[in-house]
Design a protein around this nucleic acid. Structure first.
Lengths: 351, 351
DNA sequence: CTGAAAGCGCTAACAT
DNA sequence: ATGTTAGCGCTTTCAG
């Protein structure tokens, strides 16, 4: 009861392993072993117990930095996101974090702003900070960073590279795009435009190709001036492309967009010209990102399992991190199934 | 030309300061001084130059972890976000990152999921990882973590604590709410409902009080059963509250919501009952988060300067980090001005 | 101006 | 089962 708490803390105010060891009357090495799950068995049960108690009462928290310096492991994962403003990513991040946390890892998120240079900087900074691996959603096909990564475990999410040199989890973009095209064709549309993203991203490139393929399968003409490719996958770019569509003079009654943001941009361009969706033009998006159901009109789109993709990516990374499977790099290529979500932005063509 | 590049790197593959020193023929201490901006003047210009070149050619990157262990500075800032799914936060994060990056700091983001326990864990983990300071958007008034922070520099964004013990940047919630109430009153509404957030958050509590005050100022009755307070600030909670409003039997023609997400929930509840906004009920949100202009209908709301708030928060933190100003803690309390953004969710009452 | 040496907090052989 | 020692990569006195 009356026992005065040993106040053996260093002058700096921070409780260190040495402080704990001193207070428990053992050597720092022993204290270290006692405090560590893995090595606890190497130490006398009573001693271990005592060390634990002292650590608790002193409010000891190990310094992961110092530990990492020694062990070369930080139990930290770098997560590279191209654009945190895109609502597609938060649910993916959540999936990643949840799964990683269960496994005792911390994730640090960086927002690369779609800028290869920034991506490179963030990547290096994380590497320098000793992250144990990466999950990246930013991989362009010409991947600035990918070739720098010699040894770091890494998995791609919602992106992949052609040669399969990296593990990845994606939704089946070709199947999804086909779903979108089939849907508008079924509604009776024949003149269908495509508002695409850059060819440097695996997703948007796949969707572009799948669009043309699906059109051909329906024996529909792929009009070059109705099949546009943008430099970004943003609202503005979608708007720009849709204006271009409208300016072309060519007729079309439906637009398949490469993602939801671009679809939203189409809404804007259509509204500018006094056109109403879906009465005049049907629009279908891609991703079913949060809020799609609240847009004006609610957006018909292709749903991909965001959260699950994050979880799957984390799982893949954890596999790589697991030393028992030393070279699983590139082995996993999880492909999830997309599905069509019909809302109010699509309808049979007028007339 | 023919000079063989010195390949003095350690067996581990990583280029370390010692490797650079050895290759440059100087002592590690000297190399350290040469490599560091601050101490470079202490070293012979030629030597410094040579060290720099060798470092470059060897591809040397300092290990911030090791440095941090020594200097007790990580040049890393922890950013605690309550809910990454809320589009309000990404622009704030962007502001924070941009400003911090200019100053040479890296930000690491954690998503606390509105869970005090998780907040505490993230906070501790960051502290352990030697972050130099915190920016947090998660501060509840009963702030679990706030009292743990003895020395760490910290600034609150979009939240504040009553006693002003922490620096904060907020928008003027009372003024903003008044704007919202004034707007619907001006449109002719008299029976105005309030869909509020928890009293544990400074923002939602202020908005709640300001609502009542503004109503009184207009000599309008504040009906208790039309002035609701929820436990969360989510779409679902807004929906739940709005249903409650509808079930109360009391008449109202406008809803002032505590944030945009809750306003969206009101849309949903209204739609369920076959009511249309704004014809039957006007709705005004709060925050003007991204996508508000694309909702169905586009949401009238109170705009707060998201990005600028992030920048301001970073500035405040940088002030605290600056040793020349040792005790600025709690001094700054930046308050930014909100403004009304009128869109299509508000209209004069029917009849 | 530069070298030597100590040490940040921790872990991991190696002894005992 | 525990103590000893060395060292992760860097910075920073202190000498010289």
């Amino acid at each position: 009861m009356a026992a005065v708490v040993v106040r053996n803390v260093n002058e700096h105010g921070r409780v260190t392993l040495r402080d704990v060891a001193r207070a428990a009357g053992v050597h720092p090495g022993t204290a270290s072993r006692a405090l560590n799950e893995q090595t606890r068995s190497l130490v006398n049960a009573d001693t271990a117990q005592r060390v634990l108690e002292v650590a608790e009462s002193l409010g000891y928290h190990p310094n992961p930095i110092a530990r990492g310096l020694k062990t070369r492991r930080s139990y930290t994962i770098g997560v590279l996101i191209p654009d945190i403003l895109n609502p597609l990513f938060p649910p993916i991040i959540r999936g990643i974090e949840d799964r990683l946390e269960q496994a005792g890892y911390t994730s640090v998120i960086a927002n690369t702003e779609n800028d290869p240079e920034r991506e490179r900087i963030d990547f290096r900074a994380m590497l320098a900070r000793q992250v144990d691996g990466f999950i990246t959603a930013t991989a362009r096909l010409d991947h600035a960073i990918l070739d720098e990564i010699v040894g770091a475990p890494m998995v791609l999410v919602n992106r992949r590279v052609a040669d399969g040199s990296f593990a990845s989890v994606t939704a089946d973009d070709r199947a999804g795009t086909k779903l979108a095209v089939d849907h508008v064709v079924e509604l009776g549309h024949r003149q269908i435009a495509f508002v695409g993203g850059p060819m440097t991203l695996s997703t948007t490139r796949d969707r572009h190709e799948a669009f043309k393929e699906a059109m051909r399968k329906h024996r529909l003409k792929v009009d070059r001036s109705l099949t546009l490719v943008g430099d970004w996958i943003t609202i503005r770019e979608g708007q720009r492309l849709c204006r271009e569509l409208l300016d072309s003079g060519k007729h079309f009654s439906a637009i398949v967009a490469a993602n939801d943001l671009m679809a939203l941009g189409c809404y804007d361009a259509l509204a500018e010209r006094g056109l109403v969706c879906p009465d005049d033009v049907s629009v279908v998006g891609y991703n079913d990102m949060p809020f799609c159901d609240h847009f004006n009109p609610p957006l018909t789109t292709i749903r991909i399992p965001h959260y699950e993709m994050g979880v799957a990516a984390a799982d893949l990374l954890l596999d790589q991190l697991d030393e028992r499977a030393p070279d699983t790099r590139g082995r996993g290529a999880v492909v999830l199934e997309p599905s069509l979500v019909v809302r109010d932005s699509t309808a049979p063509p007028a007339g």
